[in-house]
């Protein structure tokens, strides 16, 4: 049972020591390999991480992912209707970071209106509009993962378009 409301969340450090347990019941969890590159070029050098296969995606059933590495939780979605920036044959597949860019709380997926909602301070983001903040405190829209789909239907993440909460470089560097 996934609880989307955080009661007395205070200043607990949710994400110390790995996040995937926090992200909730995962339909599928896929970890990228080789996520930590040496001084990668800005916006270019991202790990190509396999997130899943077209055959495994169901409309409105989110898949928990980690990208660019396991400590950065995200969500892979098949929306069922084409959206701007959507990948796949139907143009309806998108993937986002689920760390609220306001204060880093894990966002909760609401299938009814296809939004990602923050239990910490009530911000919400539209999964059908490139992660645009519908209402909230974040000063950026939700980081979206660039997707590529190969001939076998494997879905790869290959980039991020905003800074992910909690890291000053999307691809962590030593």
């Amino acid at each position: 049972m996934k609880c989307n409301r955080l009661v007395d969340v205070g200043r607990r450090q949710f994400l110390r020591g790995g996040v995937l347990g926090v992200a909730g019941a995962a339909a599928a969890t896929v970890l990228p390999s080789g996520a930590r590159a040496e001084t990668p070029r800005a916006m270019l050098d991202y790990p190509a991480a396999k997130l899943g296969n077209l055959a495994d995606l169901k409309v409105d059933v989110p898949v928990d992912i980690g990208y660019p590495d396991a400590d950065s939780p995200g969500i892979l979605l098949k929306l069922g209707t084409p959206v701007e920036g959507g990948a796949g044959p139907e143009g309806d597949i998108v993937a986002y970071s689920v760390l609220c860019p306001h204060k880093g709380y894990p966002l909760a997926w609401n299938a009814a209106d296809r939004t990602l909602n923050c239990p910490g301070h009530y911000s919400r983001f539209d999964a059908e509009k490139g992660g645009q903040q519908v209402w909230g405190h974040a000063t950026q829209n939700l980081p979206q993962f660039a997707l590529r789909i190969d001939e076998a239907g494997d879905i790869f993440a290959e980039g991020v378009d905003e800074l992910i909460y909690g890291r000053l470089s999307n691809v962590l560097q030593a």
Binding site: L15, R16, P101, G104, E162, L172, Q173
Partner: peptide
């Protein structure tokens, strides 16, 4: 240690808008 992901409410992060 900023080579690691920071937690919610961290003091050790700032956004591009900042």
């Amino acid at each position: 240690d900023l080579s690691k992901q920071q937690g919610a409410m961290t003091e050790a992060w700032y956004s591009p808008s900042m």
